[in-house]
């Protein structure tokens, strides 16, 4: 294989592996910036993956599948919101619980409806988000590195990939340039001040977690009906937690979130590529090392060795209006 092929192939799979992380980490950003810890990203992703696969199977439309995924993800978000905003329960416990519920419920329902051990039936290509070929991609493939890059990285991705990269600047704009964004950042730092200004802390936080559910719906849908053609047991496989790590690694900021997700996606792609191969000087590096690397990097960052990561001050604390 040519070096160019390897590099382009790796970049392509980096993009594909980063997309669910980007959506999920941006979802976490809204939730955590409003002061609600969200360990349940993983569960939301899984539940929406299942819902999108089921809806796409019955309707034959990927867009309705996406809608189903978003709907279920928002329902999970609202349960989390009810527990942590209205009932003032422990946000971490609520997230852990929802992850358990999603892991169990998806397989139980899948098994009862389709009898394939929790899997959903294989989808036809018309019910999926398939690759979009850009004009001139075929011709460009033969034209050196940039041509190949255009043909296999820029072109030939599904619509959700492009949506993810459009979402990043939109999120940046919402968080930093709108009134809602200002209030969102304020409520995660000092809800008391927001309340004093006459703005409802509760409604603001509910809106934040609904947006989180909305974005998680995209990542779950991407897993089930864009990257693959059916729902598989536990197909999120810890990606929700990696996204959480990426969010922290990016210090809760939208543009860095994208780069952190691309970095973690690249590590994933690189470890797939390196499986069974040996590196110069160090020999064969175990695949587990690459799997652990995102978490190790995040811990090193948290330790304050690469800048400082300061979480929103009011994160994890339920807001009580009066005592």
């Amino acid at each position: 294989m040519h070096t160019v092929d390897i590099i382009v192939g790796m970049l392509g799979s980096t993009i594909r592996l980063s997309i669910p992380l980007i959506f999920t980490a941006l979802a976490g950003l809204f939730s955590e910036r409003s002061g609600i810890f969200d360990i349940g990203l993983e569960g939301k992703m899984l539940a929406s993956a299942f819902a999108s696969a089921v809806v796409a199977y019955y309707t034959g439309s990927p867009w309705l599948g996406l809608l189903g995924g978003i709907g279920v993800s928002i329902i999970f978000s609202l349960v989390h919101g009810y527990a942590s905003i209205t009932a003032r329960g422990n946000q971490i416990v609520s997230g852990v619980a929802l992850n358990f519920v999603a892991a169990g419920l998806t397989v139980v329902l899948g098994n009862a409806w389709f009898r394939q051990g929790g899997r959903t039936p294989q989808l036809a290509n018309s019910a999926r988000f398939t690759e979009i070929e850009f004009p001139g991609a075929d011709a460009a493939r033969e034209m050196g590195f940039f041509g190949k890059f255009y043909a296999e990285v820029i072109s030939g991705q599904n619509i959700l990939v492009y949506l993810a990269f459009i979402t990043v600047p939109i999120v940046w704009w919402v968080v930093y340039k709108t009134r809602f964004g200002l209030r969102l950042r304020a409520v995660g730092e000092n809800p008391g001040a927001v309340d004093t200004a006459g703005i409802s802390v509760i409604w603001l936080r509910y809106r934040a977690i609904i947006i989180a559910g909305f974005l998680c719906g995209f990542s779950g849908t991407y897993l089930a009906i864009a990257q693959s053609a059916s729902f598989i047991n536990n197909m999120s496989a810890g990606k929700g937690y990696i996204a959480l790590a990426a969010l922290i690694f990016a210090k809760w900021k939208p543009i860095p979130v994208m780069f952190a997700c691309l970095l973690f996606g690249f590590l994933d792609a690189f470890s797939n590529f390196m499986q069974g191969k040996s590196m110069p000087l160090v020999g064969e590096v175990p695949v587990q090392f690459f799997q652990a690397l995102p978490y190790i990097l995040t811990c090193v960052l948290l330790a304050g060795f690469i800048g400082t990561a300061r979480p929103p001050k009011a994160g994890g604390i339920p807001y009580t209006k009066e005592r």
Binding site: A83, S84, A87, G89, N90, V93, S94, A97, V101, A103
Partner: peptide, 13 residues
């Protein structure tokens, strides 16, 4: 799933 619900209602709620 039942565990998750027990954790949700006995823990978070």
């Amino acid at each position: 799933m039942i565990q998750g619900l027990v954790i949700l209602f006995a823990g978070a709620l």
